[in-house]
Design a binder for these strands. Structure first.
Lengths: 219, 219
DNA sequence: CACTGTGAATTGGTTCACAGCC
DNA sequence: GGCTGTGAACCAATTCACAGTG
């Protein structure tokens, strides 16, 4: 049984490997902007604090992108990773945002989404004073229009920036409207059915873990 | 060699375990607010999608907090975890913020830091129009005062919310000023010396990884 | 000959399963 | 009887080491 890379079976690539691909992509785009055309796994590893072997093995899950004796062509590899992730140039994932408080507004104005394959195309809030407000070409809509607005539109990814107490309810509504991936900023980890991905961003959890190490671990 | 829990050696607890402790703490505080006094590893696991064995083993790195036949007293366990992490009630880690754009401002107004053991006590920016501005009891200071302000103050944790192009330089300055942990929101992973912790929060990386799964993995 | 791609070896993390205790 | 705490077993991820190649 000769397992060539990318034999079409799903679930074969470990999550942790998928999670590193965007990191590689980032680094490659930076190298590209510096005019660097060729990079070895060793150089890339030095840049990212990742072992060369890890990088080569990770990439080998998706294909053979390098040249022996040379390394990887920066542009070629970055294109390949974009392709793998589904964020190739030309594709832009439409994203829904729920919660337009100060964090939600900051996200609406964040320029990197557009550059990296995503665009916020709908924004919702419960707060009546926000509804109807126009921000960056978008009109903030009431949350009860969420299902109607998203069900037919094919939006598959949402960002949740509401208080923790509302997060579960909002996520439930999003899933009912066909959302398959949620980037959650609320300080509450919502429960979701199989087939839906959640990625939680919670600065407090990160700070607490770092506090342990700053303090000096177990004392 | 009989390795009892918490034998005082540092570095013995895997990072991944430390990273889960804040998650447990979150859940326990929620249970506590619901008036629940006792919880088993099985119940907590069901709530968090973590196996009971994992929870018990994780906790056992730090001590024996449960009662056989009963489970864990919610209040007792949450206090113990706070103690372990160094975010016990009464302690509040002072934190420096660099970058007071829309994201930085949102962070300044984020009420959870205070509740969970952290307080932003200094805020810096390069933008002259921000400097001197008062936000939430804090005066925004120019970044060249960073070293002076932090070196003597004992602030060990910083939040970086500047553009990617400035992140490395800012982190270098923070480290020179004695910072030991950085929560980095810039879309660039800064290089740091041993002994300094960085936690990167990058929504684009999360979205790109989720896009892969929404797309259906390798196709 | 410097590098990739990849099985094999190793390390680290998770889950099992049960002794001990309430 | 129900649950914790924990060695042992298992599984997953990382690293090694080298054959293969431009």
């Amino acid at each position: 049984m000769q397992k060539t890379a990318n034999n079409g079976f799903e679930g074969e690539v470990p999550d942790v490997v998928v999670g590193r691909m965007p990191i590689y992509l980032r680094a490659l785009l930076l190298l590209n902007s510096q005019g660097i055309e060729l990079v070895s796994s060793h150089e890339l590893g030095a840049l990212l604090d990742i072992t060369p072997a890890q990088i080569r093995k990770d990439l080998s899950y998706f294909g053979r992108f390098g040249k022996q004796g040379k390394g990887y062509r920066v542009h070629h590899l970055s294109s390949a990773i974009r392709e793998v992730l589904g964020v190739g140039p030309g594709t832009q994932w439409p994203v829904a945002l729920v919660g337009v408080g100060s964090l939600g507004l900051a996200l609406l104005g964040y320029p990197n989404f557009g550059r990296e394959g995503f665009r916020i195309v709908e924004a919702f809030d419960v707060n009546p004073s926000q509804i109807g407000r126009r921000v960056g070409g978008l009109t903030i809509r009431p949350i009860n229009e969420l299902n109607e607005a998203l069900s037919q539109s094919g939006v598959k990814i949402a960002i949740v920036a509401v208080p923790g107490s509302q997060a579960q309810q909002v996520v439930d509504q999003l899933i009912a409207a066909g959302i398959k991936a949620v980037l959650n900023y609320a300080p509450y980890s919502p429960r979701v059915p199989d087939g839906v991905r959640v990625s939680n961003i919670d600065p407090v959890l990160s700070l607490q873990a770092m506090a342990y190490f700053v303090k000096g671990g177990t004392n």
